[in-house]
């Protein structure tokens, strides 16, 4: 049993491969989370423009990318774009897919946060001469982010988990590396190791999220 699932000799042998995967997963997360947040911020800011020419395309965009499975989107970019003469690497495809998919989710969260800030806040700012953009930057967004922090955290957790999709397009992140190691060793140990690492990586985030959620609940009482 231990032989094929948690073999110390195999761990020692494939450790560098899995570690490289872990580093890439962290790196990938550090790129796609800010990208998704950026995409979300753009969408949320566009949502404050109440013009039909902005509103309807925006709604279609967000609906489309929330309804479209991220794995399908990723494969479409990776395997489909070359037929249009555009060959992007796996890494770039992951970045674009996440910008589109998780951006739509982050956008909805941030939009809810912006909506939660009373209109009087903007009016107070504007009455002192702040521009629309300044009122948004200094008054609305800080409060909006604070109001939806647990949701932003929760989505970020999902995004980090989703980086494992990169394995499908040969991005050498944790899952991909573990699969490589597995096929080298004909043993399940690398996958088990990767699973443990994923858990150890995400568990502190989950704990932090729980505390934030409890605090938010207590604050509402």
């Amino acid at each position: 049993m231990i032989e094929s699932f948690f073999n110390p000799e195999i761990i020692a042998a494939i450790w560098p491969i899995v570690l490289a995967g872990l580093l890439n997963t962290v790196l990938l997360s550090l790129i796609v989370v800010p990208l998704g947040l950026l995409g979300g911020l753009i969408l949320a800011l566009l949502a404050t423009v109440h013009h039909p020419l902005v509103r309807w395309p925006l709604m279609a965009w967000v609906d489309f990318f929330r309804a479209f499975p991220p794995l399908v989107l990723l494969v479409l970019l990776f395997a489909g774009l070359p037929f249009a003469g555009l060959e992007l690497g796996g890494f770039a495809c992951v970045a674009i897919a996440f910008f589109l998919n998780t951006g739509a989710y982050y956008g909805e969260i941030l939009r809810a946060g912006i909506d939660s800030v009373p209109a009087g806040q903007v009016e107070a700012g504007r009455s002192t001469g702040l521009s629309r953009l300044q009122a948004m930057t200094y008054i609305v967004l800080p409060q909006a982010v604070r109001n939806v922090l647990p949701d932003l955290m929760s989505n970020t957790l999902e995004v980090v988990k989703l980086t494992s999709l990169g394995s499908v397009v040969a991005v050498p992140e944790l899952l991909f590396q573990a699969r490589q190691a597995q096929s080298l060793t004909y043993n399940a140990t690398p996958i088990v190791l990767a699973a443990i690492i994923y858990f150890l990586l995400l568990w502190p985030l989950v704990r932090l999220l729980s505390r934030l959620e409890n605090r938010a609940l207590a604050g509402r009482r």
């Binding site: 009373p118 009087g120 806040q121 009016e123 107070a124 700012g125 008054i139 409060q143």
Partner: peptide, 8 residues
């Protein structure tokens, strides 16, 4: 304003 509207 009636409701103060201070930035919390």
């Amino acid at each position: 304003f009636q409701s103060f509207n201070l930035y919390p």
